[in-house]
Amino acid sequence: MHAGPDLYSIRIDGRLGITALSAFPAMVHHVDGRETVLTGLLKDRSALFGVLAEVEALGLELIEIRRIRPERRSGGRGDDRSADLWWG
């Protein structure tokens, strides 16, 4: 079980305005077409669920959560960055 902070990217339907963005101070955003992708380092699972709760509370539509593993140091198996996908 991996402990410690992980990099996550969260994809939301629609463009988040400045007010909604202020609800995710730990994350940066970029617009991808009609969607917004929030990326940030969340320190643990509780932090992740906190972000998800905020998404729910603001009535936003979740499209995808992706955990981006930190880069492997040595002896990697092929791809340095493997990503686990959750389809929301």
Binding site: I12, D13, G14, R15, L16, G17, T19, A20, V31, R34, L58, G59, L60, E61
Partner: peptide
């Protein structure tokens, strides 16, 4: 025509 999420747009 706006892409902004519905809730935020309309509340604003």
């Amino acid at each position: 025509g706006s892409d902004t999420t519905v809730g935020e747009y309309l509340i604003a």
